[in-house]
Design a protein around this nucleic acid. Structure first.
Length: 470
DNA sequence: TGAAATGTTGGGGCG
DNA sequence: ACGCCCCAACATTTC
């Protein structure tokens, strides 16, 4: 077996890459291949920013490969056809790829495996979806027991990272297609693509440079601060491995036995395990992409008002925190985790819009957009998922703003109309006395919208709508 | 990884 | 000195 194809999908990295490691170990020649699958690229759920992030990530990967004596081969087409063709061309004896458990990927890989020697190794998370199960062999549906079982299986000393290869030998003269010409159309300053950036970000986060991990538990909910790791886009494309992140979390836990730091490391580890939980759920229950997990909540009479949905999308609801977050999403292709919960609760509960509308909008805009985590998050907020928030848990956008953006800096940054609103009114600008509105040249209803719905009223309406299905 | 409604307690003003 | 009321602060229940 002299030639192996390393089929790259969501593992754009050289470090701790089991597919790559296997290929290098078991074959003299390795062909790193990325297939531009028109089905994925042209999907209505694709985001322009996510695509740009991908193209730029591929360029970075190509650079890394060239430093090791190799290069990235790019082909366009249906994966099974492209691979058949390339195997014929190069006489490759095996294809290594990192497993991907989303329904679309599983079907694609099955088609390939039916015709070609495909070896799936590793995966998007630390755990295999079949590995963490209850005594009776069925998947956990509640997070806490799941995480307990997860931690008892994947202990710190079990996670051994494999270093990047020192040399990759790739046959010369294999035809590679160019990346699309619009690949550099969007440059995201908040999330520069590539494995190198991801590595730096993880190290800074752990060592406590910019957002100190020792205060993560306290600061992670502050929308006005950079209290989170901001690694989600890199995890989404495997520019850093989940194993490396978990390993780093364990390390931080070991080195910080006292409280603020210890609790922070534990909290971050749990966030990573939430990711594993949702990957596992989607693997066992792929139908959650189509409908609510809970059967008793499948026929809520959503209002689905298109105008209100548009106002939500564009950050024009009149609730400053909601609008700031939605504009942050559009601008950065990323939203703070706390903000995701707030805007999701607002859409689903206050506006009574089907959670799937919000799920789709997020997929169309998030650089880190991933079906498992995104669906899990939306079903959690809507109360329709497993171990979800109870239906009566309705976020108050004003209180959430005051609590998690206490000075209003997050609002002022993303909603410039409100830049001069004093902190007292920054989360309730419609309460400003008319004189003040004139003074700062921010007339509510003219320069910034009135709230499109009264939260108190909307809350009652949501409770009634959810109760009706029970 | 909520918020609102309702219940309880205790200090202080006051007749 | 006493009972009464008010209400903030906190606790519990409910959605």
């Amino acid at each position: 077996m002299d030639t192996a194809i390393w089929w790259i999908r969501r593992d754009l990295r050289l470090n701790d890459n089991q597919a790559l490691t296997n290929a290098v170990k078991n074959a003299g020649h390795v062909i790193p291949l990325f297939i531009i699958d028109p089905q994925i690229i042209n999907s209505p759920n694709m985001s322009a920013m996510r695509l740009s992030f991908l193209w730029q990530g591929l360029e970075k990967l190509d650079g890394g490969l060239r430093a090791l004596g190799s290069e990235l081969i790019i082909r366009r087409g249906l994966p099974s056809e492209v691979l058949t063709q390339l195997v014929e061309e190069t006489d490759a004896g095996v294809i290594y790829a990192e497993a991907d458990y989303s329904p679309h990927a599983m079907q694609r890989d099955q088609e390939v495996a039916d015709q070609l020697p495909l070896e799936l190794v590793g995966g998007p998370g630390v755990s295999h979806p079949e590995a963490v199960l209850k005594q009776d062999g069925t998947p956990y549906l509640v997070y806490t027991p799941y995480s307990r079982a997860w931690k008892s299986i994947y202990k710190a000393d079990l996670i051994k990272l494999s270093p990047a290869p020192e040399l990759i030998t790739t046959p010369q003269g294999i035809i590679s297609h160019a990346l699309p010409s619009e690949k550099n159309a969007i440059h995201n300053h908040a999330f520069e693509s590539g494995e190198e950036v991801a590595q730096i970000r993880l190290k800074e986060f752990i060592s406590g440079e910019q957002p100190p991990i020792s205060q993560y538990a306290d600061l992670r909910n502050r929308m006005d601060l950079d209290g989170t790791a901001r690694l989600s886009p890199y995890l989404r494309f495997g520019m850093i491995s989940a194993r490396e992140c978990v390993s780093a979390a364990y390390q931080a836990l070991k080195e910080a036995p006292d409280d603020p730091a210890r609790k922070s490391a534990e909290t971050w580890l749990n966030e990573l395990i939430w990711r594993e939980f949702y990957i596992t759920i989607l693997y066992h229950y792929p139908e959650v992409l189509k409908q609510s997990f809970r059967e008793d909540l499948r026929d809520i009479s959503w209002r689905n008002d298109e105008q209100e949905f548009d106002a939500w999308c564009e950050g024009q609801t009149g609730y400053p925190v909601v609008d700031a977050a939605m504009r942050q999403l559009k601008y950065l292709g990323w939203m703070h985790n706390r903000a995701r919960m707030i805007v999701a609760s607002f859409l689903v509960k206050d506006l009574l819009v089907d959670w799937r509308w919000g799920e789709r909008w997020f997929m169309q805009h998030l650089v880190d957009g991933d079906p498992a985590a995104n669906n899990g998050g939306w079903q959690w907020t809507a109360g329709t998922g497993m171990d979800a928030a109870p239906y009566f848990r309705i976020f108050n956008p004003i209180l959430q703003g005051k609590k998690h953006d206490p000075n209003g800096d997050f609002v002022r940054r993303w909603v410039p109309e409100l830049a001069d609103v004093p902190t007292k009114y920054v989360h309730t600008p419609w309460m400003m006395p008319p004189e003040l509105q004139g003074q700062i040249n921010c007339i509510i209803g003219r320069d910034y919208p009135q709230p499109i719905v009264d939260h108190g009223f909307a809350r009652q309406r949501a409770l009634a709508a959810y109760k009706q299905t029970n």
